[in-house]
């Protein structure tokens, strides 16, 4: 597997010389087609890391390489989803999902001539996440969980090589969340994009990821990582196995240590 996202001793400081130092000496590598979860104490710079990788902000120090190229601006092969669904309330669900096709340089010129094909793709995605029949509804007519599914479809519609998910399930109730884990896993298995998922939920990290990275308290850097080798597709049954629980407990210890600034032994 070749490295897809490489971050080499990156630092990020917001707001000039005396500003907040969000990341320092942060290095990581994500391989092509890999599903990586990033966990860490609140405010340690996880969202900042996402912004650097997608090229929304330039790093203060160090290099970010995505798909073999150094990042100098928005990388435009990325799909993103956040804690809030951020749908456009004046667009129907189908139109919301198709928004990226109207702006990405690769698709915007083809959209008019190949509208039918693109629309079929959007409908197929909505079907995969269980939203068949809701294409013509407006976001306010959907529950929070359904809006979040729509947001996932929007992140995937342009078949991005890199998917950045910043706590996409954390505003949902436990049942919906666990249901969406399985949906997310199916979506990933279907096309195997490279995924970086930020989460506070250790079970979520272990359930979904091939590898879990733990960040230190601010200024953030990667202080530990664990491989997750459970076979796929994983089911919710998996999460009750002793091995799964053990792994989650280990990660919890790393984070507890990271919050107090102690050194952790791997």
């Amino acid at each position: 597997m070749r490295p897809f996202v490489e971050i080499d001793r990156v630092a990020m400081r917001y707001g000039g010389v005396d500003g907040t130092l969000a990341l320092q000496d942060c290095s990581l590598c994500v391989y092509e087609g890999e599903f990586v979860a990033v966990v860490g104490p609140s405010g340690c710079g996880k969202s900042t890391l996402m912004r650097l990788v997608s090229g929304l902000w330039p790093a203060t120090e160090g290099n970010v390489i995505v798909d073999g190229r150094e990042v100098a601006g928005p990388v435009n092969i990325v799909g993103m989803a956040f804690q809030s669904p951020t749908l456009l309330p004046w667009r129907r669900i189908l139109e919301n999902v198709m928004l990226p096709l109207e702006v990405t340089p690769q698709h915007r010129h083809r959209l008019r001539s190949e509208r039918a094909a693109y629309e079929a793709r959007a409908r197929e995605l909505l079907r995969l996440v269980g939203l068949e029949g809701f294409e013509r509804k407006y976001p306010y007519q959907l529950s929070g969980g359904m809006q979040q599914r729509t947001s996932l479809c929007r992140a995937l519609i342009h078949e991005p090589k890199l998917l950045m998910l910043d706590e996409p399930f954390s505003a949902l109730d436990v049942f919906t969340r666990e249901e969406l884990w399985e949906v997310m896993q199916d979506l990933w298995l279907a096309r195997k994009p490279t995924v970086i998922l930020v989460t506070h939920d250790l079970r979520e990290a272990v359930f979904l990821a091939d590898r879990v990275l733990v960040m230190s308290a601010r200024p953030g850097r990667i202080i530990a990582e664990r491989r997750v080798d459970f076979p796929r597709p994983r089911t919710l049954e998996t999460t009750y196995s002793p091995e799964f629980q053990q792994l989650a407990a280990d990660l919890r210890r790393y984070i507890a240590a990271a919050r107090t600034g102690e050194e952790v032994s791997l």
Binding site: G79, F82, T86, E102, T104
Partner: peptide, 18 residues
């Protein structure tokens, strides 16, 4: 406009005009 929504669009390569 919500910063997250701007991020979604900018990460897709949207121009400010878009």
């Amino acid at each position: 406009v919500e910063p997250e929504l701007k991020d979604v669009l900018r990460a897709l390569g949207a121009r400010p005009r878009d």
